[in-house]
């Protein structure tokens, strides 16, 4: 589904990603872990198409399309979803109208009629239950005045509404209490199916108690330095990142 080959990327002239290779197949759950500053969020941003990030080498194919050639909106419509680490507050734009516009833009892209209000509200009600999000939040401006947990739940709610093929969760667990973490994880697990894949980016192992990854990768200094199964996450939690980063040649 997603094939990343030797991606290099710069931010403001500084190379952050130094040759990433990653294959994700439909139905798989991958976790990328790594210490702060290793390039985790840069990878997420590059995949979603944030313009400040300059890809200097490598290629990414997503559902057999050249992902890097697509605009951020087309990536989303093709089925890529990024749950933001820091969801943006947008005063004056109602959350419900925004999500309706997003859903209908995606439908239009795939040659489907826009949802009428009744069908949209019906789907919205279902998904609201899934992530235990309150109607009152959705009638407010996007993320305006939301707590950290509410913002993350809103991300998962949007993901549920858009039903992406590949969901990238960028530190969705950070700043969540244990209840919110459970709700968010539950939303992700409900979405997960043989046709869909999930890429979880996290600093800590605790989200992985709720979401069982098929593969765990350790990102360090812009490269994936170790890959394994979920046991690798437990080992990292126990020993810290040092056991991996020791001996990695930064200049290699």
């Amino acid at each position: 589904m997603l094939s990343i080959k030797n991606i290099h990327a710069n931010v403001e002239g500084k190379e952050i990603l130094k040759g990433i290779n990653l294959e994700i197949k439909a139905g798989e759950v991958h976790a990328i872990m790594g210490p702060n500053g290793s390039g985790k969020s840069t990878l997420a941003s590059v995949l979603a198409g944030r313009e400040q990030y300059e890809v200097t080498a490598g290629e990414v194919s997503f559902l057999d399309k050249d992902l890097l050639e697509l605009s951020p909106e087309d990536r989303a419509r093709e089925g890529l979803f990024l749950a933001f680490q820091y969801p943006v507050e947008i005063p004056g734009v109602s959350t419900t109208n925004f999500i309706k516009a997003a859903v209908n833009e995606k439908r239009k892209y795939h040659g489907l009629e826009p949802l009428d209000s009744v069908s949209f509200l019906k789907i919205m009600k279902e998904k609201m239950k899934l992530v235990e999000i309150d109607q009152s939040l959705l009638s407010r401006s996007i993320n305006e005045g939301f707590s950290g947990g509410e913002k993350k739940r809103n991300e998962i709610f949007q993901m549920a509404m858009l039903e992406p093929k590949l969901a990238i969760l960028d530190e969705t667990d950070s700043g969540l209490d244990i209840d919110a973490l459970r709700i968010v994880a539950n939303g992700i697990n409900k979405l997960h199916s043989p046709e869909r894949a999930v890429l979880v980016i996290t600093h800590y192992q605790r989200l992985l108690d709720y979401i069982q990854p098929d593969y765990v990768h350790v990102l360090y200094n812009g490269r994936i330095v170790k890959s394994g199964t979920k046991e690798l996450a437990l080992e990292l939690e126990e020993k810290g990142y040092d056991f991996i980063t020791e001996g990695v040649d930064l200049n290699a």
Binding site: A48, G49, R50, E51, S71, P72, E73, R75, A76, R77, L82, F84, P87, V88, I90, P91, G92, V93, F98, I99, A101, A102, E105, K106, Y109, S141, I142, Q158, L162
Partner: peptide
């Protein structure tokens, strides 16, 4: 706000429509 613009685009809303939404707001 570039971040807000990217946020809307990352949900599939095209750039011109996203700008109109932000300006209306």
């Amino acid at each position: 706000d570039e971040e807000a613009l990217f946020y809307l685009r990352a949900r599939g809303i095209p750039k011109d429509k996203a700008e109109v939404l932000l300006l209306q707001a």
